[in-house]
Design a protein around this nucleic acid. Structure first.
Lengths: 243, 243
DNA sequence: GCCGCTAGTTGAACGTGTTCAAATTCAGCT
DNA sequence: AGCTGAATTTGAACACGTTCAACTAGCGGC
């Protein structure tokens, strides 16, 4: 495969501007009215471009969501890195990152409901079994690598290798909960984070216990199996794309 | 709330027939062409009714999915009960039920991809945080109650109470994997079931160890928290429905 | 036999996401 | 200045899910 990774590569400065304009407009309307209530026609109109033009840059409405993920991750990363400088224990680092995630997502709460509509769909980057080459997902997992890296907790190498991915899955679960959380200021979600982070931390230590080695090995073997399957799926999608 | 639980209550024998006809036709076309490729117009045409008539019985295309869930669960239950008669250990019972689930779903593999498209959507019965009153989901969890009930494994009461729900979530994860599994005859999924059932069984025994009591308590407390939040969500949706 | 009522049925119309052939802009070249 | 080809932009057209006002069928009561 040559360098064919489709990037809706804008070739012009003006193109970049138009694309950015459409995205900003879309996110703004999403924030105000939610996803389903926002039509492509309205986005185009408010951005001052034609309907077809919006599709020139975002080949479907879902691609706008993809862009949204990217943006959210960028923002999350930006606030997480400084926070990680200040803490050393795994527990505190995870706690900080998780809380910041929700902070960042906050303005998009009503919009976010739809995000997971396609969460488990094969092509979606939110899908835990999906193609590893998705850049957004990759970047998101990378953040959790940094969470783990920076600690000096005694974690077995095998577990340490899988931990970032596992934490990413955990974090997706929390986001899923947050989407449904209607409590004021989403206190429930923050409380859930506090409790689960504590639990996760304990579980990690438990799993690191030499006594747990056989069980841990078995679980990690399972992860290999999942990864193997994911690679096969990736190939299938590769084939499908070239139709 | 009076007995207003909306049931598209057919009042006539003829109505029942029409409804059944539409559903059968829909499932048949779903099986052949998948969900997205099946239009409501084609379903109506092939069933020999008008488009509007189809909507009289299924107020949206998604309601056909709901009916599909129901059907799949009925079938799964029908084959599972006899199998449960023959086995006594938790591990064997779980293994049997899980394998049968995939057996039942088999003909709908390509259709099933869409099922999870809405999996995490608030209103979906597949949503693990959703309103407990959904009958399909309820029934599905009940099957796992029977899986647990029939065993005489020494499981602490607190865990035993939550286990059916936990197993249901586990089972949803397996189905999610199966949807993506392109391996011949879905061998990968069956292999995953074998391995995970073993792991789950071991985890249950581990969690039942008196040594684990504090951690277990904490985890179960968490479950309460989730349930509490779910109830609040239920209320919200109740309110939303009366718009 | 007719009335009136409810369940069932129809098809046209609407709004939406998406596609596409054609029109326009623009940078670089002669 | 004019030309050329690619990048960008346009708007009409399409297919689909969904809605709805109107129509029909059948049945219980007079």
């Amino acid at each position: 495969m040559p360098a064919t990774r489709k990037k809706k590569a804008t070739k012009t400065v003006k193109g970049d501007q138009t694309k950015a304009l459409i995205l900003e407009t879309a996110l703004e309307i999403f924030r105000e009215r939610g996803y389903d209530e926002t039509t492509m026609r309205v986005i185009a109109e408010k951005a001052g471009v034609s309907l077809g033009n919006a599709y020139y840059y975002f080949s479907s409405k879902e691609y706008l969501i993809q862009a949204f993920y990217q943006r959210m991750h960028d923002d999350h990363l930006a606030v997480s890195l400084p926070a990680l400088e200040k803490t050393k224990t795994l527990k505190a680092r995870l706690l900080a990152v998780m809380r910041l995630k929700i902070d960042i997502l906050e303005p998009y709460h009503q919009f976010a409901g739809v995000l997971f509509k396609t969460a488990a769909h094969p092509q979606s980057p939110l899908n835990p079994f999906a193609d590893e080459s998705d850049p957004v997902r990759q970047a998101s997992i990378q953040l959790f690598e940094q969470v783990v890296e920076g600690t000096k907790a005694r974690i077995p190498k095998d577990l340490r290798a899988e931990l970032p991915y596992l934490l990413w899955v955990y974090h997706m679960g929390i986001v899923l909960f947050w989407i449904h959380d209607q409590s004021p200021k989403h206190r429930r979600t923050y409380r859930l984070i506090d409790h689960t982070v504590d639990l996760v931390d304990k579980l990690i230590h438990l799993a690191s216990n030499p006594f747990m080695r056989p069980l841990r090995k078995q679980a990690l073997l399972l992860m290999d199996e999942l990864r193997e399957a994911a690679e096969e799926i990736e190939e299938d999608e590769e084939n499908e794309r070239s139709k």
